[in-house]
């Protein structure tokens, strides 16, 4: 298999080298890719959408139909992961044992299913496979989370004027929650943001995006033609495009954030949602 793989990759490489010989020179300003379509976008973006970041303008306005289905792909990836891994029933042979630690003495006890804990406040539940980090890591992660989330919101809201946008901001927001899950344990974040809420928010993100498009359709123009939203947003048509891009980016951000949390919860607990990394 190694030899076949080597032959196939070398053949592919040889073909690519042969094709690359015909390419325009490296960083050539007059290459076909830079002269045919892109000058229009660079020169007209400010007039047509009033968004200085061309990437955001093209992503959420000119090519928004494409981006909408990318969001749908991310949503369905979260859904597929859920269907592949999530288990609600246990096998007959497995009995669930939970581990508790006595906070004062550090003694760990194991409770089999059907038995109950002695009535005391001094026990905390711990994972059997994974020991959560110490106090310093927990506290510093907890203090960092609000700042990371603030930065994520800034990245979403300021995507018009600086690098950023829904995808990046959503991933940063999701990563802040994942960091909380790593420094504490999985149950902490499931208490804060439940599985049902994650799934609903993921769908809501896609709905915000497609709903904006459908609203344009209802107002009598093409799907995702944001000019028509001017009477609803109470601004002139040009500013309406800029504001509608923000709405769409928020939808993308919500969908991406919840998909990341959903994927992480399913992967790290192998679908059991009881304990994990």
């Amino acid at each position: 298999m190694k030899i076949i793989g080597l032959i196939i990759s070398v053949l592919t490489g040889a073909m690519l080298v042969y094709a690359a010989a015909d390419f325009p020179a490296w960083s050539d300003p007059s290459s076909p890719a830079s002269t045919y379509l892109s000058p229009h976008f660079i020169e007209k973006t400010m007039e047509e959408t009033s968004v200085p970041n061309i990437v955001t303008a093209v992503l959420a306005d000119y090519r928004s139909f494409d981006t909408m289905f990318e969001t749908a792909v991310i949503f369905s990836a979260g859904l597929v992961c859920f269907f592949l891994l999530r288990t609600t029933r246990r096998k007959e042979s497995e009995t669930e044992t939970t581990h508790y630690r006595h906070t004062l003495t550090g003694v760990t006890i194991q409770i089999k299913e059907g038995h109950t804990l002695p009535p005391s406040d001094e026990f905390e539940r711990i994972d059997s496979l994974w020991t959560p980090s110490g106090l310093i890591i927990k506290t510093s992660c907890r203090l960092l989370v609000p700042f990371i989330q603030l930065f994520g919101l800034y990245v979403i809201a300021h995507g018009h004027y600086s690098p950023g946008g829904g995808f990046q901001g959503g991933v940063i927001l999701g990563a802040s929650i994942i960091m909380l899950a790593i420094s504490y344990d999985l149950r902490t974040i499931i208490e804060r943001i439940s599985e049902k809420m994650v799934a609903v928010l993921c769908a809501v993100g896609v709905l915000i995006f497609s709903g904006t498009g459908a609203l344009c359709l209802l107002l009598g123009v093409n799907f995702l033609d944001y000019n028509a939203l001017a009477p609803i947003l109470l601004v002139d048509p040009l500013t309406a495009r800029s504001h509608a891009i923000l709405i769409v980016e928020i939808g993308v951000g919500v969908a991406v954030m919840t998909t990341m949390i959903w994927l992480y919860c399913n992967l790290s607990s192998a679908g059991k949602y009881n304990q994990g990394l």
Partner: peptide, 29 residues
């Protein structure tokens, strides 16, 4: 137009990265 980098490949690839991580999640599952 000559003063700015061509933005179109960036847009196409930005979404490809995020879709890539979603498919990575499915593969790991």
């Amino acid at each position: 137009a000559a003063d700015y980098v061509n933005p179109l490949p960036h847009v196409l690839m930005l979404t490809a990265i995020v879709v890539g991580v979603a498919t990575l999640g499915v593969a790991l599952a």
